[in-house]
Design a protein around this nucleic acid. Sequence first.
DNA 1: GATGAATGAGGCTTCATTCAT
DNA 2: TATGAATGAAGCCTCATTCAT
Lengths: 200, 200, 200, 200
Amino acid sequence: MIKKSVRQPRQERSTITKQKIIDAGYALFSEVGYYGTNTAEIAKRAGVSTGIVYGYFSDKRDILVCVLEIYLKKVVEPLFKTFKKLTAPIAVEDIVPIVIDEVIKIHKTNSKIHEALHSLSGSDEAVNAKFMALEDKLTLEISDILISLGISEQNINEKVHFSMGILQDFAHEFIYDKHEYINYVYMRNMVKNTIVNLFK
Amino acid sequence: MIKKSVRQPRQERSTITKQKIIDAGYALFSEVGYYGTNTAEIAKRAGVSTGIVYGYFSDKRDILVCVLEIYLKKVVEPLFKTFKKLTAPIAVEDIVPIVIDEVIKIHKTNSKIHEALHSLSGSDEAVNAKFMALEDKLTLEISDILISLGISEQNINEKVHFSMGILQDFAHEFIYDKHEYINYVYMRNMVKNTIVNLFK
Amino acid sequence: MIKKSVRQPRQERSTITKQKIIDAGYALFSEVGYYGTNTAEIAKRAGVSTGIVYGYFSDKRDILVCVLEIYLKKVVEPLFKTFKKLTAPIAVEDIVPIVIDEVIKIHKTNSKIHEALHSLSGSDEAVNAKFMALEDKLTLEISDILISLGISEQNINEKVHFSMGILQDFAHEFIYDKHEYINYVYMRNMVKNTIVNLFK
Amino acid sequence: MIKKSVRQPRQERSTITKQKIIDAGYALFSEVGYYGTNTAEIAKRAGVSTGIVYGYFSDKRDILVCVLEIYLKKVVEPLFKTFKKLTAPIAVEDIVPIVIDEVIKIHKTNSKIHEALHSLSGSDEAVNAKFMALEDKLTLEISDILISLGISEQNINEKVHFSMGILQDFAHEFIYDKHEYINYVYMRNMVKNTIVNLFK
DNA sequence: GATGAATGAGGCTTCATTCAT
DNA sequence: TATGAATGAAGCCTCATTCAT
């Protein structure tokens, strides 16, 4: 049998179509998850035929991987931008609130797709690897930036990693405002102080 | 339309059969996730026929819900037991390490099923509600216990909730030992100190 | 993912259903060939649902293989029966006409399925192997029988194999009566004499 | 409905393009059969776009028919050339070996495409008709040649036809050398003697 | 003429669920 | 209760063919 090759966009139209499919996948995976989405629906939402989807992607999972990559960029880039704007000397007290806001903002825009994609980590090795790589990249590069800004490099990886976990948890909870018995303003302060203390 | 009613096990044998199905579901959902498991396989693993599964459960999702309940019990009970053993006056420095170990232990036994079930929170409202209820129960009851043990009740919910998030994150990372650049012993200490400081 | 296992018929009904599917496949492959048949059509012709087809066969090709095996039996058995009836001493002149008739009879009943199956030899290794095995079996076993009946064993394999080729060709042509310029009665005689001469 | 007319190549370039497509079809049908080949792959192999294929051919089957015609020429022409070289008086003993070699040579170059095309005879009437016509042409014209060379015309068609069958079978077996228990040198001699005897 | 993107019907297969026994 | 055969809707993907450029 003949192996099929995925189209490498040559025409302008190609690029647009591929993007439309990715966008549709992004939207649908966000809304109803990977298993709640079928390829016909993706095509329909993208305004294309079912067949052409397989002109650009080898299979449904391939769409997922593309969506994942888009998502990862949406997370990584604004965060790094925030850090790269900083100049020495820095005051941790001032930076942490900025980062908290940034993380919340990122979560606000992407929480649904994050859940949809992250939930596949357990069953899809490639997805898992990409999430791992994201964590690694964030931890190590932010650590580097902080060191270059004069923060002590003592166990910096652990501190950054730990902080990231806290921030993510908080952002998630904050935007869903899940528990009525939680005062999120107070909690935000708790998060801030905890992180600030780590880097003192 | 006549609604089919799901069997209420009255006999001993019935209860055993139902339990076997739940166990099989538990095992398979852990191993390959909800979408990677089909009902025929559950029946086979349970050593029963496919048909009888629908004698005990209204549908596949119903098995999921039962598995979820089992899981929740497995998480809640040992944790409460740990806390209920405590007697006033307590020294936070002594208790936190115990709780850390307990949470790690729970995670070790249940991490796969946790992932499998939790990943459905985004797409299944009932699952999501149960996870929420778990968090609520844990937060509020542990807060009560701590208050009864003499811990200041000032923002206790936030403190407990925040601590739980940290503990979960850490336990997850710890058992997977995911990142080579992380010194988990150091991190464990960081977790401990952070939590201890909250309650001082 | 869980691997699917093909049903091993346990109930009476099972065996019947499986047979119905094989029969339907046999009929359809005969009529419109393997590629002209789809699984839905097989199921319909068998009077069963599409799904159950995959309860008995791993895929469409698996049906083909079963049909092939049935076909091979239909060819081999009557031919061997014919030879096994013979008792020494034999007169080649008397036997060849009998065999010619037998081969024609077999062809008459099976020519369409033979074409359908044989045409896949070129693209399906398993099918090819089975046809090869058929040829081998026929050649070697018939040779043995003939030797036991007193025929000289000098180059018996080549003689039998060559004769079989001639017989097949002739039977095929004879039943289709393809060419008006051919006198098939005369040709039949030519075939007979040719074979008789080989074994003299 | 307006019927689309297939391009009639008038320009040199057109002819070349059409030929490239036929060649690609020829190659692919040989390698993976008609059903294992798709038009996109034919176009790719031919170095043209998928669309233009339908400028030269009405559909995929049309390519097949063209390939078939090429094939038939490749078979017929060298065989006739061989016969046309002969001059009276001829000695059958001398000619048969030459023809055997010629048929083997033709088979060697074309066996794969032969299988691929011939396997469609059963399901495609036009293909079947062309193969029939080939047989007719070969039988009748070779018969004529032989008569003109002084061979007795008694049942000449049957003799030629029968011989052709034998030759084809043998050539096929010979080039694949399929059965280890067959001495192909001996068999070749058997084929030769059988045919020679027919014409004596 | 030529390109290659796009179409969409149709094929194969899975699986939650029901039914006859 | 229990069995496991049966159902059929629905999902993924292919590919001959058409169309916009």
